[in-house]
Amino acid sequence: MDNVNPNEKSQGADAKSGETGCEGGGHAIEHLHEAEHDLEKALEKQRDAAQEIAKAEVEIKEAIREEEQEHARQFAVEVLYDGVKKKFEVRIEETVKQLLDKAIAAFGPLPNPHTLSLYKDGKELADTSTIKQAGIKPHDVLLLRPSTVKGGA
Protein backbone atom coordinates (compact mmCIF):
# COMPACT_ATOMS: atom_id res chain seq x y z
CA MET A 1 0.00 0.00 0.00
CA ASP A 2 2.96 2.28 0.84
CA ASN A 3 4.44 1.64 -2.54
CA VAL A 4 1.84 3.47 -4.40
CA ASN A 5 3.05 4.81 -7.65
CA PRO A 6 2.64 8.57 -7.50
CA ASN A 7 1.90 8.61 -11.22
CA GLU A 8 -1.02 6.27 -10.76
CA LYS A 9 -2.39 8.52 -8.02
CA SER A 10 -1.96 11.48 -10.18
CA GLN A 11 -3.75 9.80 -13.06
CA GLY A 12 -6.62 8.98 -10.75
CA ALA A 13 -6.86 12.56 -9.64
CA ASP A 14 -6.85 13.74 -13.25
CA ALA A 15 -9.62 11.31 -14.12
CA LYS A 16 -11.71 12.62 -11.21
CA SER A 17 -10.93 16.12 -12.24
CA GLY A 18 -12.08 15.27 -15.78
CA GLU A 19 -15.45 14.05 -14.45
CA THR A 20 -15.87 17.26 -12.52
CA GLY A 21 -15.12 19.21 -15.73
CA CYS A 22 -17.98 17.38 -17.57
CA GLU A 23 -20.46 18.19 -14.81
CA GLY A 24 -19.47 21.91 -15.02
CA GLY A 25 -20.12 21.95 -18.82
CA GLY A 26 -23.64 20.59 -18.25
CA HIS A 27 -24.44 23.44 -15.88
CA ALA A 28 -23.09 25.96 -18.33
CA ILE A 29 -25.34 24.65 -21.11
CA GLU A 30 -28.29 24.73 -18.76
CA HIS A 31 -27.47 28.35 -17.88
CA LEU A 32 -27.16 29.13 -21.55
CA HIS A 33 -30.64 27.68 -22.25
CA GLU A 34 -32.06 29.69 -19.37
CA ALA A 35 -30.40 32.82 -20.67
CA GLU A 36 -31.78 32.17 -24.15
CA HIS A 37 -35.24 31.65 -22.72
CA ASP A 38 -34.95 34.87 -20.72
CA LEU A 39 -33.77 36.68 -23.84
CA GLU A 40 -36.76 35.41 -25.84
CA LYS A 41 -39.11 36.54 -23.08
CA ALA A 42 -37.44 39.94 -22.98
CA LEU A 43 -37.69 40.28 -26.76
CA GLU A 44 -41.35 39.32 -26.63
CA LYS A 45 -41.94 41.99 -23.98
CA GLN A 46 -40.07 44.47 -26.15
CA ARG A 47 -42.32 43.62 -29.12
CA ASP A 48 -45.44 44.01 -26.98
CA ALA A 49 -44.17 47.33 -25.70
CA ALA A 50 -43.44 48.53 -29.25
CA GLN A 51 -46.99 47.59 -30.27
CA GLU A 52 -48.44 49.45 -27.32
CA ILE A 53 -46.35 52.51 -28.17
CA ALA A 54 -47.55 52.41 -31.79
CA LYS A 55 -51.16 52.05 -30.61
CA ALA A 56 -50.75 54.94 -28.18
CA GLU A 57 -49.26 57.11 -30.95
CA VAL A 58 -52.28 56.43 -33.19
CA GLU A 59 -54.62 57.30 -30.31
CA ILE A 60 -52.73 60.53 -29.64
CA LYS A 61 -52.90 61.53 -33.32
CA GLU A 62 -56.63 60.73 -33.40
CA ALA A 63 -57.19 62.78 -30.23
CA ILE A 64 -55.25 65.72 -31.71
CA ARG A 65 -57.29 65.45 -34.94
CA GLU A 66 -60.56 65.38 -32.99
CA GLU A 67 -59.41 68.33 -30.91
CA GLU A 68 -58.51 70.27 -34.04
CA GLN A 69 -61.86 69.40 -35.62
CA GLU A 70 -63.70 70.44 -32.49
CA HIS A 71 -62.03 73.81 -32.38
CA ALA A 72 -61.44 74.56 -36.07
CA ARG A 73 -63.11 77.82 -37.02
CA GLN A 74 -62.52 77.48 -40.76
CA PHE A 75 -62.24 74.25 -42.68
CA ALA A 76 -63.05 72.44 -45.92
CA VAL A 77 -66.14 70.38 -46.67
CA GLU A 78 -67.31 68.67 -49.85
CA VAL A 79 -70.68 69.06 -51.54
CA LEU A 80 -72.00 66.33 -53.82
CA TYR A 81 -74.42 67.04 -56.67
CA ASP A 82 -75.31 64.64 -59.49
CA GLY A 83 -72.26 62.47 -58.83
CA VAL A 84 -69.77 65.37 -58.74
CA LYS A 85 -67.95 66.51 -55.57
CA LYS A 86 -66.69 70.05 -55.04
CA LYS A 87 -64.72 71.48 -52.11
CA PHE A 88 -65.78 74.55 -50.16
CA GLU A 89 -64.10 76.47 -47.35
CA VAL A 90 -66.52 77.31 -44.56
CA ARG A 91 -66.39 79.29 -41.34
CA ILE A 92 -68.32 78.04 -38.33
CA GLU A 93 -70.32 81.27 -38.01
CA GLU A 94 -71.50 81.15 -41.66
CA THR A 95 -75.06 80.02 -42.27
CA VAL A 96 -76.00 76.87 -44.14
CA LYS A 97 -77.79 79.15 -46.62
CA GLN A 98 -74.48 80.87 -47.45
CA LEU A 99 -72.87 77.53 -48.20
CA LEU A 100 -75.96 76.43 -50.15
CA ASP A 101 -75.78 79.56 -52.32
CA LYS A 102 -72.06 79.03 -52.98
CA ALA A 103 -72.69 75.41 -53.94
CA ILE A 104 -75.59 76.26 -56.25
CA ALA A 105 -73.43 78.87 -57.98
CA ALA A 106 -70.50 76.47 -58.31
CA PHE A 107 -72.56 73.64 -59.75
CA GLY A 108 -74.60 75.78 -62.06
CA PRO A 109 -75.92 78.23 -61.94
CA LEU A 110 -78.85 75.95 -61.20
CA PRO A 111 -82.30 77.32 -61.96
CA ASN A 112 -85.02 77.07 -59.29
CA PRO A 113 -82.54 77.08 -56.38
CA HIS A 114 -85.41 77.17 -53.87
CA THR A 115 -86.03 73.47 -54.59
CA LEU A 116 -82.54 72.51 -53.40
CA SER A 117 -81.21 71.88 -49.89
CA LEU A 118 -78.11 70.57 -48.20
CA TYR A 119 -78.26 67.19 -46.45
CA LYS A 120 -75.98 65.71 -43.83
CA ASP A 121 -76.30 62.14 -42.54
CA GLY A 122 -79.64 61.84 -44.32
CA LYS A 123 -81.13 64.94 -42.70
CA GLU A 124 -82.03 68.19 -44.41
CA LEU A 125 -80.10 71.11 -42.88
CA ALA A 126 -82.02 74.22 -41.87
CA ASP A 127 -80.92 77.18 -44.00
CA THR A 128 -80.81 79.50 -40.99
CA SER A 129 -78.49 77.29 -38.90
CA THR A 130 -74.83 78.17 -38.70
CA ILE A 131 -72.25 75.66 -39.84
CA LYS A 132 -71.48 74.97 -36.17
CA GLN A 133 -75.14 74.59 -35.17
CA ALA A 134 -75.70 72.21 -38.08
CA GLY A 135 -72.91 69.99 -36.72
CA ILE A 136 -70.85 70.26 -39.90
CA LYS A 137 -67.27 69.08 -39.32
CA PRO A 138 -64.09 69.27 -41.41
CA HIS A 139 -64.12 66.93 -44.42
CA ASP A 140 -67.87 66.22 -44.16
CA VAL A 141 -69.58 65.32 -47.44
CA LEU A 142 -72.89 67.17 -47.79
CA LEU A 143 -75.51 66.31 -50.37
CA LEU A 144 -77.00 69.03 -52.56
CA ARG A 145 -80.31 67.58 -53.68
CA PRO A 146 -83.95 68.46 -54.17
CA SER A 147 -86.09 68.22 -51.04
CA THR A 148 -88.80 66.40 -52.94
CA VAL A 149 -88.80 64.46 -56.21
CA LYS A 150 -92.22 63.70 -57.58
CA GLY A 151 -94.27 63.61 -60.73
CA GLY A 152 -97.87 63.34 -61.70
CA ALA A 153 -100.24 63.57 -64.61
Binding site: L80, G83, K85, G122, R145, V149, G151, G152
Partner: peptide, 28 residues
Protein backbone atom coordinates in the same frame (compact mmCIF):
# COMPACT_ATOMS: atom_id res chain seq x y z
CA UNK B 1 -102.79 56.35 -60.47
CA UNK B 2 -101.86 59.98 -61.05
CA UNK B 3 -98.38 60.37 -59.60
CA UNK B 4 -95.34 59.17 -57.66
CA UNK B 5 -92.94 60.40 -54.94
CA UNK B 6 -89.38 59.16 -54.47
CA UNK B 7 -88.37 57.73 -51.11
CA UNK B 8 -86.23 60.20 -49.18
CA UNK B 9 -83.81 57.68 -47.61
CA UNK B 10 -83.36 55.96 -50.95
CA UNK B 11 -82.54 59.31 -52.52
CA UNK B 12 -79.79 60.00 -49.96
CA UNK B 13 -78.16 56.61 -50.56
CA UNK B 14 -78.52 56.99 -54.33
CA UNK B 15 -76.89 60.44 -54.21
CA UNK B 16 -73.85 58.99 -52.40
CA UNK B 17 -73.73 56.07 -54.84
CA UNK B 18 -73.60 58.48 -57.78
CA UNK B 19 -70.53 60.10 -56.22
CA UNK B 20 -68.89 56.78 -55.44
CA UNK B 21 -69.40 55.45 -58.98
CA UNK B 22 -68.74 58.68 -60.88
CA UNK B 23 -72.14 58.56 -62.55
CA UNK B 24 -74.63 61.28 -63.41
CA UNK B 25 -78.37 61.28 -64.15
CA UNK B 26 -79.12 62.17 -67.78
CA UNK B 27 -82.84 61.34 -68.14
CA UNK B 28 -85.76 60.80 -65.86
Amino acid sequence: FGGFVLDDDWLNKFWMELGDTNMGIRFQ
